[in-house]
Design a protein around this nucleic acid. Structure first.
Lengths: 127, 127
DNA sequence: GTCTTGATTCGACACCTGTCGATACAGCGA
DNA sequence: TCGCTGTATCGACAGGTGTCGAATCAAGAC
């Protein structure tokens, strides 16, 4: 079933991915798609939610585990989880009374690869 | 540098970073700081600007090279460049008539490392 | 000096986003 | 069945964001 993760992630077909952006200019569509994912990461609460989920035992967490550490209301947490889900960064499933969330590693890997830069090469020194 | 709170953590200082977020929950301050950088990446124009700069010959580009490919006004480009600069993702310098921008690789590397996930290990995915 | 070109800043505007409380929905247990 | 607990959705509101044209600043050419 690990294949289905890629399907979920492919909100648009793999047109976008994986080559560092320092290599070649991003296309317009690719930029729109990637910006959507980065936007999901652009909120401190969502960032912490994501890491909380990812680092949780078993790689997944129930919503009830996630509302505690924050001082925002439960509907707000739910909203943020929805944003993460719609960005393709996490998956979710109801299991009995509780709803569980887990990170989709391929999505993170995609973004990570995109940002990969040849560090050490002085691309920014004073000139 | 306007971030008085996190003054130590420059482009290359590793106060916040570098451990994948799937390893341990992000602290509150770290999340705020990182969210600021991701927010800078959360706009398609800025994403393309960044990759345009990074992939430009010599690793840097003059603003005049950057206004062409977009259908937004030049002040808007300038605004986006400012956002990228204030997020610590690019550096800039006036050189005669023109202003040049370059990517700060350490900043990208920091974000990239953060997103690094153990792909292949199915982090709680399929059920 | 004045003019021209490149870039930033300013002020304004429409739209988007994060947050809340109230409400609705989904399972479970009594 | 009814009620309880855990989540999601709704509607509203304050504040933030992207965009523009106009004005301003900076450096070089004349």
């Amino acid at each position: 079933m690990s294949n289905s993760e890629l399907v979920v992630l492919g909100q648009d077909e793999a047109a976008v991915c994986c080559s560092p952006m320092v290599r070649e200019p991003l296309g317009e569509e690719a930029a729109v798609d990637l910006a959507r994912m980065f936007k999901a990461l652009s909120d401190p609460v969502r960032l912490r939610l994501l890491s909380l989920i990812a680092s949780h035992e078993g790689g997944e967490a129930c919503v009830c585990d996630l509302t505690g550490p924050f001082d925002v209301s439960q509907p707000t947490i739910s909203h943020h989880l929805k944003v993460l889900r719609e960005a393709g960064l996490v998956g979710s499933e109801r299991r009995g009374t509780w709803v569980y969330y887990w990170v989709l590693p391929a999505a993170l890997a995609k973004l990570s690869a995109l940002l990969q830069a040849p560090v050490g090469t002085d691309a920014g020194g004073a000139r």
